[in-house]
Amino acid sequence: MPGSQPEEFSVSAEILALEGDLEYGEYLASECTTCHQADGSANGIPSITGWETEPFVTALHAYKTKHRDNEVMQIIANRMSDEEIAALAAYFKTLEN
C-alpha cells in the first residue's frame, strides 16, 4: 500500500469503530474520483479502492492532522468529519481493485 503513515501516528479505537454510511460515502467519493480512479487504476496518483477500513481511515486522519504530506490531501481531509471519513472508507472498501 503506497504512502504508509509515520509509525507514531494512529487514530483512536472509537474513530475506527465508526460505521460509515455507504450512500453518503458514494456521494463524498465523487470528490475523490476527480483524481483517484474509481476502477483502481493508478498512474501518478495512488489507487484508493479496496482498502481495509483501518489504513484508509488512518491515512485520511493523518492528512487531516498534517502528519502526512501533500497539500491537496491536507485541505481535502481538513474539512472532513470523522463520520465522513468513515463513510468514505466504507464506500471505497466496496470497490474492487
Partner: peptide
Amino acid sequence: YEESEGWYAGITAD
C-alpha cells in the same frame, strides 16, 4: 508533475 498526470487520467475517466 507526476501528480498532474494522475489527475489527468482521473478527471478524464470521471
